[in-house]
Design a protein around this nucleic acid. Sequence first.
DNA 1: CTGAAAGCGCTAACAC
DNA 2: GTGTTAGCGCTTTCAG
Lengths: 332, 332
Amino acid sequence: MSFVFNNRGGVGELAKARILRAAADLDWRPDARARALSSRRAQALGFVVRREPELFSTDPFFPQFIAGVESALSGVGYALVLHVVDGERAEHKAYGNFANESRVDGVFLTDLQLPDGRPAELERLGLPFVLVGPEAAAEGGYSPIGLDDAAGVRRAVRHLRALGHSRIAHVGGPERYVHSQVRRQAWAEELADLGLEQGPVVMADFTGAAGARATHELLDRAIPPTAIVYANDLMAIAGMSAAMDRGLRVPEDLSIVGFDDIPLAPYVVPPLTTVRQDVIEWGRACARTLIALVEGREPDPVQLPAVEFVVRGSTGRVSGSSPSLAGGDHVP
Amino acid sequence: MSFVFNNRGGVGELAKARILRAAADLDWRPDARARALSSRRAQALGFVVRREPELFSTDPFFPQFIAGVESALSGVGYALVLHVVDGERAEHKAYGNFANESRVDGVFLTDLQLPDGRPAELERLGLPFVLVGPEAAAEGGYSPIGLDDAAGVRRAVRHLRALGHSRIAHVGGPERYVHSQVRRQAWAEELADLGLEQGPVVMADFTGAAGARATHELLDRAIPPTAIVYANDLMAIAGMSAAMDRGLRVPEDLSIVGFDDIPLAPYVVPPLTTVRQDVIEWGRACARTLIALVEGREPDPVQLPAVEFVVRGSTGRVSGSSPSLAGGDHVP
DNA sequence: CTGAAAGCGCTAACAC
DNA sequence: GTGTTAGCGCTTTCAG
């Protein structure tokens, strides 16, 4: 009988159909626990998210990624076991539990760092995994599945250049993340390719508060930038707000570019120009790859859609005159 | 030996300590699958989220709730199994799988409706659950765990009244959700209590697009409102943007109140006045209650913090004159 | 092609 | 108090 459910040959088509019908009639499904015990596979994938609650609830990546993963899992009978942890020790322990308790067959690794101890650790634990992140996060022979963030940032810089900007700054994410580094480097390289001088850069932490602070820091400089490229939308929107508080107009005095295209991006004033990734598709691809991995199959090569650059109202031609830097008074 | 891990008496303290030490030394943990099979408990809780991807990634509720749940689970060895589904059939199937495969010991039920078939269904499946939502969603003898949304909305209406507003409209969430109904009713009742006439109401679907549309609809009326209370921040911010597009100033011509206090709320222009709930604590309380339930213990009574009303810049005194309704031209 | 039977690694009942 | 053992409900090997 178990042959039927595991699609192993050797069962007559007739008997097979009869068994499946009976199972359907009784609304019977094999018990996941028993199946897991005897087959030594949990039929579940693990995802441990290490983020402070504020960032977890802000970052559009996680819900979308999870939704994508789910869309690939539901059809093939895998479950997703999620863990949200708040520190390195807790994350470490979570992987240990996953492996020792055999709760999951494989895990997703996000927020890649360089160097990142986790791949080696998971290998030691015997837990298959996929690296979720930019190509640049490749480590120890593993190649990540990810979109080309860099292309989006480069597009943004070229767009600003075309609008006449030459003093283009960057507000980055936490330096330990590879994706922060990739975005920053793409910005720097495109600037160089365009023959522009390297603008100032401030690394922040993806929160609104940090985005506002970084923006003030940039605008306090003797020669402030006329455009800022942020590593995520939340910082960009907070930065836009900070600039307006200083009496600057967006985009007349300062152009702003975000990254993510959160659902709110079209609805801030002015609407945010930003970079959009198809995170759902990304999650789906990662899930398919991980399933193939844990089942010992060769994963299909993944081809992810390119990032899109979405031009809205927060970027515009550089104004002729240097913007007024008087603090505190709103432009009427 | 299993007595040690299950804290059953009858084992010498000495032997117990020795066993635990040995286990720690070997980094050994009982296999979750085997344990689940023999004890007939999965040591896992299930959460099925039925939302379209856009809303799932926008709604600050889910990540925060999950983070709260996790904080209660990690210490006691339970795992969280998450399912994101896109329709009623899929949700139904998800519960069936949870129960028949014995993947989880209990589930969280959110986005309560009235009537809601799920409690009866889960009872039939023999799956314990907690209702996550407002008191008003009580059904069939089950009382939900939730915060008093209504108090926040009433506070908002009183605040607007104190600022001189008398034409206060409401943009609600999908009518099928009890929490949408609760917020709408609180708005209506407070209006009545204050002796104000019932303002216009438009029910939307929590998305930015719907919030903008509803706002236009409200402002198109012969006598437009001077203030709008929204059922969530995303619609409020989109509404604010829509109003500004029509040349209205916020808060001079129109006051706006949201609901959720998303991380972006302080960073839009003007900063959003809104209602904040402690969703993390809420999730924790639900998890603790559900664990007690599945373990056959009497759950501790839960005492959730009250909702907070956060006044920022999007609400202000009602202006003497009726706002200009000329469409399309920005106020300079 | 089909039925019987031996585990998978625990828990819990039972004797010692 | 402590050791022994029979399942939990499957998968998979091995005879029939």
